[in-house]
Design a protein around this nucleic acid. Structure first.
Lengths: 215, 215
DNA sequence: TAGATTGTTAATCGATTAACAATC
DNA sequence: TAGATTGTTAATCGATTAACAATC
């Protein structure tokens, strides 16, 4: 086993690795037992430069063969391992609104190792509702469930106004990483990992280009 | 009025502009009539280099004053104009599931000029349901509504398996831009603008860093 | 004026792409 | 072998940061 603990993948690299993974899966290439694929073929599918692909594979410890290419199953396993998909990540979802419910009910993230231990809401009327496989829990249960399941990841889908309070509470309860869907910037200690999912950026990009094209 | 039709903002620039906009709004700076702000102050708030900020402002036509800084309202207006927030963008949401419903019901995008003309679903059981201010429409209404409202933007929240078929149909109906939340890659003509909102990337980034930190 | 801040040029840094020897 | 493909170094490109004259 190649030790990849010491290497550090930046966000662009992670995104590219996920792109390779997606295209390989999408084309059902992983089903061809012992099948191989060249960096040029992946480049053709994904639009990413073939030199870049070979470098990325080198970083995650995948070795290819001259005149043959890379063994598909090796690539898939290495990407899963590098990205942590082969480890289950327990998590909690805070906010049982439409977005929180969508994430809690979505099965696609399970392939990435995500396991949702519980879904919380502050609204008493929502407590007890069943969304996906989850019963909406009151926030009072937060500490207990986080400890019980050794949860380190929280998925935040509360309104902007409530985000900071909940965040402080999550950090006190031992959360180490926050996937933030609230349209606000969180004030957090440096050691906590945050990913702000700013959907507004996507919309801005589209409206901007639409405007450009119509002129 | 500065002509910004000819300039081209890339994705990083758009993201930075939105960041400035967010921090200026978040700190209620726009309410200070005639108030000014320096690039160093925005740098402090946003973490973006002050030289970069001055360059971005130059690109969107905002002029500052020595020893004073930039007039807040001018900055806000210029960003809104550059990003197209001052123009209403009619759109349709395809897929009245939890995610589609969340987007259709969310009011935050209105500030960016987004107007949702209709919400569609293929499932007959969902037709007629009320989500937010919208009645779920059958796909048969797609062409009529797109023409009626001159819709050019479609927001796609259908399962991966249905995404390509719907996309083809949308393009035939005259859609020019697609905000794709389906976890799949769409095959589309070059002239159509697509933004793939790959939430899996965010999750991968977090699980990767959690794994790194625990070793 | 002195000094703070802009606007812009130059330097640095990192990411991407090209080139090509090594390999099978 | 000849030729296709990897692995890696070198070159290019673009984005970021530093420096600093101009300005008020």
């Amino acid at each position: 086993m190649v030790n990849i603990n010491t290497i550090s993948l930046n966000r662009s690299t992670l995104e590219r690795l996920l792109t390779y993974y997606h295209f390989i899966n999408h084309h059902h290439l992983q089903h061809s037992v012992g099948g191989t694929i060249s960096s040029a073929q992946i480049a053709e599918l994904s639009g990413i430069d073939d030199t870049q692909i070979r470098k990325d594979f080198a970083v995650i410890g995948v070795k290819g063969r001259s005149r043959v290419g890379f063994i598909v199953t090796e690539v898939v396993h290495a990407i899963c391992h590098a990205l942590g998909f082969d480890v289950t990540t327990p998590s909690v979802v805070i906010g049982a609104g439409r977005l929180g419910g969508a994430i809690a009910a979505y099965k696609g993230f399970v392939k990435q190792g995500l396991n949702i231990a519980a879904l919380f809401d502050i609204n008493p009327e929502k407590i007890g509702l069943i969304i996906g496989d989850h019963v909406v829990q009151p926030l009072e249960q937060l500490d207990i469930i986080i400890k019980q399941h050794a949860v380190r990841l929280a998925i935040l889908t509360v309104p902007a106004g409530a985000a900071q309070d909940i965040t402080d509470r999550l950090i006190k309860a031992g959360i180490k990483a926050i996937w933030n869907f609230s349209p606000t910037s969180l004030n957090i200690p440096r050691e906590i990992i945050v990913r702000n999912e700013r959907l507004a950026v996507g919309l801005a990009e589209l409206t901007y280009h639409l405007k450009q094209n119509s002129q």
